[in-house]
């Protein structure tokens, strides 16, 4: 059985990129930045690291494009799910806050 062997990329370079990006991630949380900015930076760094692992360690870069779509689909689904869940979550928060406000309003009326 012949094996279709693709060229091996420079794995040590990928290793150093991943190590450096991890150090940057840890450095970011100590930076005096807005919470939102830190969040965006951390998400970007994590996605960058994940992309490096998938593209080079998992050889996705050397596979057909369709296989890439198979790999990306779960990420799209998970991202969509966050936006589907958030309105419901915030609605519950609003409701609880509303109930609390209502009880504090009705409480003095009893007297």
């Amino acid at each position: 059985m012949a094996t279709a062997e693709h060229k091996h990329p420079n794995y040590m370079a990928i290793f150093w990129y991943l190590a450096i990006l991890t150090v940057v991630e840890i450095a970011v949380i100590y930076m005096p930045l807005a919470k939102f900015t830190i969040g965006v930076l951390l998400c970007a760094l994590a996605l960058g690291k994940a992309a490096l692992v998938a593209m080079y360690f998992m050889h996705l870069r050397f596979e057909t494009r369709t296989l890439g779509w198979v790999a990306v689909t779960p990420l799209v689904i998970a991202t969509l799910l966050v936006f589907l869940l958030l309105p419901d979550g915030f609605a519950v928060v609003k409701k609880t806050v509303g109930v609390k406000a209502a009880t504090t309003e009705t409480a003095p009326a009893k007297h």
Partner: peptide, 12 residues
């Protein structure tokens, strides 16, 4: 999708 669902649920 399993991990994505767990993390999305966590985030929400």
């Amino acid at each position: 999708v399993g991990f994505g669902t767990l993390l999305a649920g966590y985030g929400a």
